[in-house]
Amino acid sequence: MLGKTAGGLFWMFRYLERSENTARLIEAGFRIALTRPDGADDEWASVLQTAAVAGAYRERHGEVDGAKAVDFLLRDSANASSVLSAIAAARQNARMVRTALTREVWEAVNDTYMILKEELARPVRTRDLPEKLAMVRQQSALVRGALHGTMLRNDIFDFCRLGTFLERADNTARILDVKYYVLLPSISQIGSSLDNVQWETILRSVAGQRAYRWLNKGESSPMGIADFLIFDGRMPRSLRFASMKIGTNLAYLEKAYGMRHPCHDQVEVLTTRLDTMTIERVFDDGLHEFITDFLADIARLGGQIERDYRFLG
């Protein structure tokens, strides 16, 4: 496979993952705005920060405002990470790697782009927002389904998955990075309704609220949520799950190509740390430091994969 193609697949799936995660963040923010109107602006500020676009937003709109934040996150072409921009970038990459995709995957991505371009052509009214966000989620599921149902399990598939899980690990870690303070024992008061809402938001933004309740008999605790999002290998958006997947996909590539690279060592260090650490130790050593290190590791790993598989010249 061409290095350029591997890079195109990787980025195509990073962008798809990003669009879906941004849509989930908007959903979580929207939910808070509905249920706790006085905390809404703070929540939007934190959503913008999580999506790593707070600076860009300030430059464009200044003060945080719910409607403007939604628009910026959802459809502003000036925001390269907006749902619509990310979908367009994913589709542009898909066109570039068209020969590596099945017709069904290509059509799913192309459909997604055409539908969302149409649906998000104008600012979305508040009452239409849930429907539009649901559409983004449905379209992501469609692409994922086409990928799983029609693609060969070969190096092409591995690069798609690497993009997905690297982006996902990054996104979940960002949510924790921005919200870590509400999970700290010193601040959280047991049973305080403010924190319950905050925790709820964290779980919602990773589509994990229901799973978490099932696993924890309906009881929430900050440490429990942090444990769930970082260490639970059953949770498909946890750091551990995403890292494991990066590890297995890199291992497939190692086997297929019969070649081991520095990225293989890096991911091994990363997954071993997640396998051996406990949430208690993370809280003792500092949750924030742990997350900061993880984000840096993920960024470094992405760069290493790019070099090891010759995405660029």
Partner: peptide, 29 residues
Amino acid sequence: AFLADQMGVELVEGHDLRITDGKVAMRTT
């Protein structure tokens, strides 16, 4: 893209290619 795909061969651009050992070669993974 269509023809490359249908033939099952790589679709390359100039910057994917270089000359090595008397052959034109493409940068693969």
